[in-house]
Design a protein around this nucleic acid. Structure first.
Lengths: 339, 339
DNA sequence: GTGAAAGCGCTAACAA
DNA sequence: TTGTTAGCGCTTTCAC
């Protein structure tokens, strides 16, 4: 049988309650006793039974990550990985559940899962985190949730995000600094929260540099490689071609590079291409893509922290309620001064 | 407070034990009683507390997926997704945990996690699933585990795999059928179980077609884009260049395509390139890569089934103990007849 | 067929 | 500062 708290108590020569105190970082344990207990825990490689704990206390030490099934991506993978790391550090566990927003009644099913599992909190990502009905139900059920990239209404819950506007502006400034004057932009899916922000950042930076944005140099896109390729074809077919194209995510940047290759346009010498996200695509592309790195793992970690800490100091809407983490401009091989 | 089994019992006018019987589909409950209980459950929208259940019984309804942190990949993501789907269908939950094989004593930590969580079973993937010490500990602990791509000793545990030899042979036959006679091959990491199998399949198919394999047309690789690029550079620099290159995974195929682009060699007209795995890379590449699709989601689903069903009919080494699922040759745009 | 009693391993409340 | 006593909500005996 597995090691229990009694075994640890016996080995350390104390009561079970004392072991419990050490486990939960409670006060009133003398240092030598604490160390003896810690030693016994180590020696026995003891881990408290999550079920017993969950049954006797309010905490379950379980955090749920709800992922939208069809939208599965590198983004989701990075997020999960970050959450996993933080959970491990905090001695929590991550329960991953699939969400199918197409399915009617999916919210009820989610709530049922959550309550059966007594989750301490859940992490929501787009597009799940913008579903009004779901948020409302979570709130009436009193279930703590944190959203990553919450979009319009961050204050509504704990949230973690980056400043998309500033990031897009910085990328644009990078292109301008290289000497580009004529820069095209490819947008993302209209209903994604980041789409208008990234475009706004681009336009602000252009304006700040006293550069104009031609109407035919803003192309619609959909965050996919193929969408980027089509937009790229269109932009590259223009009579006066831009010397740089800023695609608002990496997959679309990859598509632009495919379109360029097809026309015999060499990146970056004849055309600079920039992306956004620092996804896997940006790293495996050839040449590698200049992009904006979102600290996705840190963001997930921050979300986990918010969920866990909420239980100790219940102060919603405090200063840390809506965190905006720093992004990073990653300059790689797809951008260079214009020919 | 949440609804408990007692509330249900009271409402149905029976004892808690009877409700428990209905919940677990046990025999010896008369139909009218059963219906009354079911009615009460429905009326109260009762959900048994997973913790209480797990604490008092052997089953936890939890399955663990242990993923090697650095090796995180699209493969792992697909696997998880498949497991998640099957778990949901079976009313189980998936707990994902990180493994760091570099860390000394990681096995002990894993075992501790598993016992703390009372997992009903765990799914292991490469490279974790080939760690002898870990398998031995799982076995002494009596913990059911299933391996995906188990390598050398599938019989040792339940396992799910594809026939790498046959798949590689089929890809090679595809290239030969297109008219290629001079085909190069890029190997994977030596200690990965699939590496020798894929090469064997390649050589068998060449031999079967009466074609020779030149020594300088077998290149070492490491399953990465860059490794593929380096191997590609080498192969393309040869005086008598092969007309097709079969890289034993998609990332390396992508690297080969980058090497070709650099030399101005057009794929597929001047060079055919084939990959393996049908990963994301194969789909976003331009041209898209001809590859072998592993039914990774089905494989994960099968692993979940083996773990769950084991509890009812404990018959290890039965006919379903080592499943080999069908792969699929996916012909895309990177392969064509030689110029 | 059904129910009463006794835990599962832990923590909350209360003593000491 | 530490230990004792009850449960948490369920399933497992083992009666009836």
């Amino acid at each position: 049988m597995a090691v229990t708290i009694k075994d640890v108590a016996a080995r350390a020569g104390v009561s079970a309650k004392t072991v419990s105190r050490v486990l939960n970082g409670e006060a009133y344990v003398r240092e030598p006793v604490r160390e003896a207990v810690l030693g016994a825990i180590e020696a026995l490689s003891y881990r408290p039974n999550v079920f017993a704990r969950g049954l006797s206390s309010a905490r379950s030490y379980l955090i749920g990550l709800f992922l939208d099934d069809p939208t599965w991506s590198g983004y989701a993978a990075g997020l999960q990985r970050g959450a996993l790391h933080r959970c491990r550090a905090r001695h929590y566990h991550l329960l991953v559940e699939l969400v199918d927003m197409e399915k009617p009644g999916f919210e009820a099913e989610m709530l049922a899962s959550i309550s059966a599992l007594r989750l301490d909190g859940v992490i929501l990502t787009p597009p799940v985190c913008t579903h009004e009905g779901l948020l409302a139900r979570l709130e009436t059920a009193g279930l703590p949730y944190v959203r990553v990239s919450p979009g319009q209404t961050p204050q509504r819950s704990g949230s973690v995000d980056i400043d998309d506007v500033a990031a897009a502006a910085e990328m644009t400034a990078h292109l301008i600094a290289l000497g580009h004057r004529d820069i095209a932009f490819i947008e993302g899916i209209p209903d994604h929260a980041a789409t208008p922000k990234r475009r706004a950042g681009f336009e602000q930076a252009m304006q700040a540099a006293g550069l104009g944005v031609r109407d035919d140099c803003i192309a619609a896109g959909d965050f996919t490689v193929n969408g980027g390729r089509l937009a790229g074809e269109r932009l590259l077919a223009l009579d006066t071609r831009a010397t740089a194209i800023f695609a608002s995510n990496d997959d679309m940047a990859l598509g632009v590079m495919a379109a360029a290759a097809r026309r015999g346009i060499v990146v970056p010498h004849q055309l600079s291409v920039a992306g956004f996200d620092d996804s896997y695509s940006a790293q495996i592309a050839w040449p590698t893509i200049t992009t904006i790195r979102q600290p996705i793992m840190d963001m997930a970690g921050a979300a986990v922290d918010m969920l866990i800490d909420r239980q100790y100091r219940d102060e919603p809407h405090g200063p840390q309620w809506n965190r905006v983490l720093p992004y990073e401009l990653v300059v790689r091989d797809s951008t260079a001064p214009p020919a």
